[in-house]
Design a binder for these strands. Structure first.
Length: 902
RNA sequence: GCCCUGGUGGCGGAAUGGCAGACGCACCGGACUUAAAAUCCGUUGAGUGGAGACACUCAUGGGGGUUCGACUCCCCCCCAGGGCACCA
């Protein structure tokens, strides 16, 4: 005790001090393969280190996992908690194009800034395991995994229609295109054929679907993946053509409606279109094809109402009834799904119905809808009244209106009418119902009620006659895996003079990114790497053959597909990771990150993981056992009477109200995404500077449930900051040392009870990631204890320990000032005593007819009879019961008595 | 259009079948101070009655239901946010 210590809570002093301490002592180093402790792998989605630094959204999930980890360490777990950088990406490259600064330089600068910012939060990462996807020591292994995929036949180059974004100068994956525009930057995207690398993710579609079901993930996220994979079961059916030997193959989920197929539709891009187009239709078909080709996907779907199409002039033959049906083309059929062709059953498919009505193609029902469905649409059926005897129609309508049954003859007439004039019922009937008009010499499904049963029979028949088979179709398409960029992993592939492809051997890895004089796009579709003339030339060290290196690079997703595996063994130069270590640490027990990655990253990573599993490189089929998405942190904005947002620097605050600085109009507050234009972005550095990291952490956790979106309110930080000050003063005296008010005098029963309650609640809340209620409990504790003259020293120690996962700097500091010499990071988590939670007497609510009318104090052990007796003895209750008959008494021991009277 | 979330005081939220509004913000009153800041103590869902402690009524987006009892469970509707969107 040479120099007196600061008696006031000063985060700017203590926080850097403990951050240095943790780094220097390697307090949070995870121990590989320590079998004496249970392992716990807690992962944060690593950030893209952008030039603008951290925003308040980043630390939300990071704080949550940090608290969880710190708690678990005290509970004796061996915790792996890590951070790294998803550092390949467009912004650094665009900056390089503009300024000539090498992306590596920009990236390094941003990483340093991010690291420093993250360390200022006191997160308990094992910093010795930091990874950077742009480090050749890292991307060597990204390339190695690609070679594994390649050898398994899961990577291939194909000429496919790709999403080309001129503004970004690159192609994009389907997942990166939203409404025909790029996910990053919102630039237009057009479809064009280009030879690109693809990964055969479709081969894993079924397993990605099935094995995802059991994961402890948010239901919404699992649902989105399910949707994206889009499994449908049904049949392939081959339709012969009238004037050709070729066949049109279609996929349908409703083979049971085959007898109702009255036409076919091909996608405009379908390869059979030229052959099927008759001379007199040629002009119209070609015009339509051209129009469809120039329309973006967005135009094709956005105005999705009105159907368009052209007849090819040719006919196909319906295999079940030999009927000649016309073949049309229309852009409501997508070339990219199924076989790019459909059989159209207008009576039982909404889209086909619209199309058939527009082009006057016949609609043939093969299923009778239930009476309720028919009757609901009767009102629309104007023609029906004239078709029938009007008085008969009116009678039926009246019967429906009054909810009476209709005579069998009426039902019969209604059904007959539907079968003859389905178009009059305004919409298709796509559900189960009795099949009709569905038989030929060798099969009948007439009378079958359930669609799946009817489908089964038809599929059997199709199989027998070689006209079709059972088929499962997925929406998921192969993953377009190459980009025309510089700042990405080069492919470990060369194209040899003899036309073959050469995959690099492990010894040839990594294929380093070449230096370039400038990073500008070539202006053509050639990637920037094509400018590295020296680098391009490749000679196979084994055979001496010559070739040219692949010039595409991998997409940003590549590095993030496996980073969680590299954390396990980040410095291994001989392998991507050590198998023993992998076996010890995997799977990730808790993964926390934004919901925006629900399909992209999380699906891609699962795919790679499964491939690695099949190859025996990893020991678990799924990488992430439990997944949580933190909610968005919103900014506060203001809008005027017309609902227009007003930027925050144009708002005056008076008397708790908000006014437009210029017009004086009163504005209403509303939460919205933080944006530069609204001037409502909160910078974490400012908050830490003013209140410290502990207050920041505490506030973000106190705002509300982790997974909810919640608006940032800087005034709220004041509240938790005050709480930290109070906690400090509860323990530290005016001399800066342990307060003289602390003693070993035993606690009162109430104090003891509160202490044990708090231990219990904190343990449970930390386990459930319910940090807001954990903090509330600590506040209750502080409110109680800080008003006492004498405070039990052991209780204060326990309090500091309970607080420390949430606010670790003040935790360590108070621990030290309480006289402890070891860091509290591994101090055993306190136990609570169930006995100490019990009360001798309880206050029980007495209700009369469910309304609280009084309270009685009874011994905690009181049984139902004693409770009832106490309730009946209460004066207020007797007043309520006067002159009434007690019908029933409900007693819930420990909770309440409810007396039901008449 | 379809799917998923959610809707509780002035605000963030708590309570998941048993006293609605814990905890915090904001507001108001008081103590301390020459004064302010900080700190401490207290009030605050709405309405009606009462000088008053208090009493009663209403209240968890709206409507219905189950139950002795519903923020909580069920059905219908409205609103907000997110996702998907001609996937045959």
């Amino acid at each position: 005790m040479s120099t007196p210590r600061n008696p006031t809570y000063t985060p700017s002093e203590i926080e850097p001090r403990w951050q240095k301490f943790w780094l220097a002592k390697k307090t949070f180093a995870a121990v590989d393969c320590d079998t004496t402790r249970q392992k716990l792998y807690v992962l944060d989605m690593f950030p893209y280190p952008s030039g603008s630094g951290l925003h308040v959204g980043h630390p939300e999930g990071y704080t949550a996992t940090d608290i969880y980890c710190r708690h678990k360490r005290m509970k004796g777990f061996n915790v792996l908690h890590t951070m790294g950088w998803d550092a390949f990406g467009l912004p650094a490259e665009q900056y390089a194009v503009e300024t000539g600064t090498h992306p590596r330089f920009t990236t390094q600068k941003n990483i340093d800034r991010f690291r420093q910012q993250l360390q200022a939060f006191g997160f308990s990462y094992d910093w010795d395991r930091e990874v950077d996807t742009t480090d050749p020591k890292y991307y060597k292994w990204t390339q190695w995994i690609f070679t594994q995929l390649y050898k398994k036949g899961l990577a291939y180059k194909a000429e496919v229609p790709v999403n080309w974004c001129q503004a970004l100068g690159t192609v994009l994956a389907n997942e990166e295109v939203i409404n025909g525009r790029s996910e990053r930057g919102n630039h237009p995207v057009v479809r064009m054929p280009l030879k690109q690398w693809m990964l055969r993710i479709t081969k894993y579609a079924d397993r990605l679907l099935e094995e995802g079901e059991a994961l402890d993930w948010p239901e919404g996220t699992k649902d989105m993946q399910r949707n994206w994979i889009g499994k449908s079961t049904g049949a392939e059916v081959d339709f012969e053509l009238v004037n050709s030997d070729k066949k049109i193959r279609v996929f349908t989920t409703r083979p049971d409606t085959l007898f109702g197929a009255t036409y076919m539709v091909l996608a405009p891009e379908h390869p059979l279109v030229p052959e099927l187009t008759t001379p007199d239709q040629e002009q119209a078909v070609e015009a339509y094809q051209e129009a469809a080709a120039t329309k973006s996907d967005f135009d094709r779907t956005e105005l999705n109402k009105d159907k368009s199409g052209v007849f090819t002039g040719s006919y196909a033959v319906n295999p079940v009834n030999g009927e000649k049906i016309p073949v049309w083309i229309s852009d409501y059929v997508l070339i990219s799904y199924g076989h790019g062709a459909i059989m159209a059953v207008p009576a039982h498919d909404t889209r086909d119905f619209e199309f058939a009505r527009k082009f006057k193609i016949s609609i043939r029902p093969v299923i009778i809808p239930p009476l309720a469905w028919l009757s609901e649409r009767l009102g629309h059926v104007q023609a029906l009244r004239n078709h029938w005897d009007p008085s008969f129609y009116d009678k039926i309508m009246l019967a429906f209106a009054e909810g009476r049954d209709i005579a069998p003859t009426g039902v019969q007439q209604l059904e007959d009418y539907y079968l003859k004039h389905p178009d009059k019922f305004e919409e298709a009937y796509p559900f189960d119902g009795i099949h009709v008009n569905s038989e030929n010499n060798t099969i009948s499904i007439n009378g079958i009620l359930r669609n799946d049963e009817a489908c089964g029979k038809i599929i059997e028949w199709l199989k027998r006659y070689g006209a079709g088979r059972r088929h499962t179709q997925f929406k998921l398409r192969d993953w377009l895996f190459s980009r025309q960029r510089y700042w990405g992993e080069p492919f470990p592939v060369a194209h040899m003079e003899d036309g073959t492809e050469k995959l690099m051997t492990d010894a040839e890895l990594p294929v380093l990114l070449p230096e370039l004089a400038d990073f500008k796009p070539t202006g053509t579709m050639d990637p920037p790497l094509s400018k590295a003339k020296e680098w391009l030339r490749y000679t196979d060290p084994a055979t001496g053959r010559h070739g040219l290196r692949e010039t595409n690079t991998m997409p940003q997703w590549a590095g993030s597909c496996w980073y969680y595996l590299r954390f396990i063994d980040p410095h291994n130069d001989g392998a991507a990771w050590d198998k023993e270590k992998e076996k010890y640490w995997m799977p990730v027990d808790l993964y926390v990150g934004g919901a925006e990655h629900a399909v992209l990253h999380l699906l891609y990573a699962r795919f790679w993981h499964k491939v690695l599993f099949d190859l025996g490189h990893v020991s678990t089929p799924e990488p992430f056992k439990k997944l949580i998405h933190q909610g968005l942190i919103l900014g506060i904005s203001y809008k005027d009477g017309r609902g227009f947002a007003v930027a925050n620097d144009k708002v005056d605050h008076r008397d708790g109200k908000h006014f437009h600085k210029e017009t004086g109009e009163e504005l209403t507050e509303f939460p919205t995404k933080m944006s530069k234009s609204l001037k409502n972005v909160v910078n974490p550095d400012d908050i830490i500077g003013q209140y410290g990291a502990d207050a920041f952490r505490l506030y973000e956790m106190f705002m509300g449930p982790l997974t909810d979106a919640k608006p940032w309110n800087t005034a709220g930080v004041e509240g938790v900051y005050r709480f930290l000050h109070r906690s400090w003063r509860m323990i530290v005296g005016p001399d800066g040392e342990r307060s003289q008010q602390l003693s070993d005098t035993p606690m009162t029963r109430e104090q003891e009870r509160l202490l044990h309650q708090t231990i219990k609640k904190l343990g449970e809340d930390f386990e459930n990631l319910s940090f807001n209620t954990a903090i509330a409990q600590l506040m209750i504790f502080t409110n109680e204890f800080s008003r006492c003259e004498i405070r039990n020293r052991r209780a204060m120690e326990i309090f500091v320990q309970l607080l420390s996962p949430l606010a670790p700097h003040i935790g360590e500091e108070l621990w030290e000032r309480l006289g402890k010499t070891e860091s509290l990071s591994y101090a055993p988590w306190p136990q609570y005593d169930e006995e100490k939670l019990k009360l001798d007497e309880l206050e029980i609510v007495v209700q009369v007819n469910g309304k609280p009318r009084g309270k009685v104090v009874v011994p905690a052990s009181a049984d139902a009879a004693a409770l009832e007796a106490a309730a009946r003895a209460d004066a207020k209750i007797q007043e309520q019961l006067a002159g009434k008959t007690v019908v029933k008494v409900i007693t819930v021991p420990g909770r309440l008595v409810n007396i039901v009277v008449k």
